[in-house]
Design a protein around this nucleic acid. Structure first.
Lengths: 266, 266
DNA sequence: TCAAAAGTGTTGACCTTACACCCATGT
DNA sequence: ACATGGGTGTAAGGTCAACACTTTTGA
């Protein structure tokens, strides 16, 4: 690929996908950032992401970036907004299709493996200054997350295949940043038929072991939300925009991730 | 602008904004399509839209296209999804940031002015075959509209500044395609403080004149929805993604529209 | 037997739904 | 005076929110 190989009769912007990767760890909401090694914004933290390939779908590009960055795939991934202010990247016009991803706690160790160098989980409450307009993107992603929490059960994606109701409640509490009544929360879960007891019980706790639950639909993503009403709104959930983007394999990404960490994206 | 003027070291896709323009007319939901005058899909109907300029925001591009196509501005416009399958345009890789717009019934005549040639309103129930992946985009836009109807009051945007409750109810009925109980609907409206009686009354009707109402917030866009529950979901409305994109002027667009109709976009 | 978290029911307030008749105006 | 759409109330059922104690286990 030599210089100026690609020529067009009209100006074309560059197109990237950036991913806001959420997880819950140490009882708080975290997101994954990478430290930039080149100008502009050298040394600052930014969202993982990169240019789309010309022969891949946007979803595919996001899934690829995610896997390269974290070694994780088969994870909840959703496009939420496209950003395109003319000067958002000082080098050239860049359109960024933003995605958010939810990584379950039991896959985190994988992602943590990538932490080696210039990739790091940050507490959502204590984010560093971000490059480009990434602070805006993160803010919007968080709002989308809260909105989804209130209207869907996507947040199950933060948990392993089998989980206790207390764990699920904690996820809700962490993201909403408010306490939830245990009885009411459980009544809500009972009313959903896609969250079901497995019959198995937690082991190894120094107290009464909790029942393990699991989500019954393939994608764990179902309408319905519990919580205080913010207003009189009633929701239908838009099923179209929800998806888990599956990619083959699961761990193959790790190796790629290690390699990629040396290079810098964007 | 000569051939191959724009050169890059990496391949760049083209980026367009396409707009799904809704209105309610003759008691049914319509959308605006333009007929393609060039290959591919020559003669087929497609969404209005076009390439973004390198110095304008995405929202601005959409607003500009909208004004060029319909002569209307200062109208509800919202980005809802970006489409980027590799072969969606057979000529080159095209990323399309899709918007939807709501045009109030009293501004329609303007848009109808553009109807002259190859632009036309279609009943949503009777759409022709669409070019590219525009059928998918339209479907998604409609789902977004229904979803918003149930959770917000955006649909006020279909109506003039002052409207009767029967008109508002009709909009709901047309979009949901089901009848609504008048008393309950009015109770719901009463419960909102951003829809208020003006004190004025309708004139010229051969029956008891209806009270005129108006929306009190600048953008007429507020959480809250009335209707049958589809599930137990409760919504918080994401305020960030809502906006009316205002542009200066209002009618200046007409002239531009007429000019543009001769040229073809995309 | 104690500590620690799991688990469970009831009530009052409010919202949602279903339903039918009188009112104000123009012709 | 009549035709046309405008406008209103009530009761039953369901959902939400607030609240505290008993159970099961491991140490």
């Amino acid at each position: 690929m030599t210089d100026k190989t690609y020529q067009y009769t009209h100006p074309h912007p560059a197109v990237t996908t950036d991913i806001v990767i959420f997880t819950v760890q140490d009882d708080s909401l975290k997101l994954l950032l990478i430290q930039r090694g080149v100008e502009p914004f050298k040394g600052q933290w930014a969202l993982p992401g990169g240019f789309i390939n010309m022969d891949e779908d946007l979803d595919h590009a996001a899934a690829r970036e995610l896997e390269e960055e974290t070694g994780v795939c088969d994870v909840y991934l959703e496009q939420f907004k496209t950003w395109g202010a003319p000067k958002r990247d000082p080098r050239e016009r860049v359109i960024t299709v933003a995605y958010f991803a939810i990584i379950p706690s039991d896959k985190i160790t994988l992602a943590a493996g990538s932490d080696a160098d210039n990739v790091q989980w940050f507490d959502y409450q204590k984010l560093p200054a971000l490059a480009f307009d990434h602070a805006d993107i993160v803010k919007q992603a968080h709002e989308t997350l809260v909105d989804k929490l209130k209207r869907t059960t996507v947040v199950i994606q933060f948990l392993p295949e089998e989980f206790t109701l207390t764990q699920l409640q904690r996820i809700h509490e962490i993201i909403l940043n408010e306490d939830i009544d245990k009885r009411n929360f459980r009544k809500w879960v009972e009313s959903l038929d896609y969250i079901q007891a497995t019959g198995k019980k937690e082991t190894g706790s120094a107290h009464r072991p909790a029942m393990l639950y699991t989500a019954t639909t393939p994608d764990n993503i179902q309408p319905a939300k519990w919580g205080k009403r913010e207003n009189k709104a009633v929701a239908k959930v838009d099923d179209e925009t929800r998806q888990v983007i599956h990619r083959q394999g699961y761990n193959e990404g790790l190796e790629a991730a290690m390699k990629q960490l040396k290079g810098l994206r964007k």
